[in-house]
Amino acid sequence: MRINGVEIEDTFAEAFKMWGTRLIITAINRQWAQTAAQATTGFATSGIGCGCEAGIERELPPEETPDGRPGISVLFFVTSRKQMEKQLLLRVGQGVMTCPTTACYSGLSAEEHVDVGGKLRYFGDGFQSSKRLEGRRLWRIPVMEGEFLIDERFGIQKAVGGGNFLILGKSVETALAAAEAAVAAMREVEGVVMPFPGGIVRSGSKVGSRYKFLTASTNTAYCPTLRGQVESALPEGVNAVLEIVVNGLTEDAVREAMRVGIEAACRSGIMRISAGNYGGTLGQYQIPLRELWQ
């Protein structure tokens, strides 16, 4: 199968069950909402190394936010409910509450919840107060600039993490341009984030290492500099590989993001699109690349 002359390898992406949530961060203007969103989702590229995977989903115009101010929606993904509460407490407490003029709302209507505002409220030292309207409880925490407003509970739902594809290019320039185009297209899909820097990963990994203290190490089969030293997965002419990892609130959202991303990445200078997997032994989801267009 080829798209724009680029080969789509007959392989699959292996993805995992996760828990996901959406936060809506608002502020006095777009700049401060963006600042808080970046701080909160910073250093959240992998669940193993960072405790969670997170990213900015999209900007929200004032008419779409609960308080009518400019906002940003961000998505978080973790492996357990307990971890979700822990990460949100840390990240909202340090990244949003500290940021001037912000407020933080649950952006997901779900049956399951984690308690965030209900625990952060203790920062108010007894002067916190709550407001309940139509079943929704908001906490007002006094801060030096006014009040920090936060939902008591945040909806969480089962989600999918680790959707991915690999872009095999003739050069780093062509691979990077294709990856940038892919990420731009994928950002238009609702309910997904690409948690790595700029949405792109260069240090893809394989399971295991020759060192006992490491559980994962560099993906040697896709490192062009090791072509002569290991069993390489790279066809002749490929000199750079970039990966895009996508997490989504639903499997359909992940599949749609992968589809539009791959279509955008299939351009001049790209030789093949592949995907990362573990032979189907680790992940609960298998997403065959060629089935994305069926």
């Binding site: 308080d67 009518g68 407001k131 309207l133 139509e134 908001l138 007002r140 009040e147 407003l149």
Partner: peptide
């Protein structure tokens, strides 16, 4: 003197119920 964020939330809801909330009041 300040701008209570929770009131932005409340007043927008009141506007949804048809009450005459102005943008100046919300902000």
């Amino acid at each position: 003197a300040y701008r209570p964020t929770f009131l932005c939330f409340y007043l927008r809801r009141l506007r949804g119920w048809g009450l005459p909330v102005t943008p100046e009041q919300i902000e």
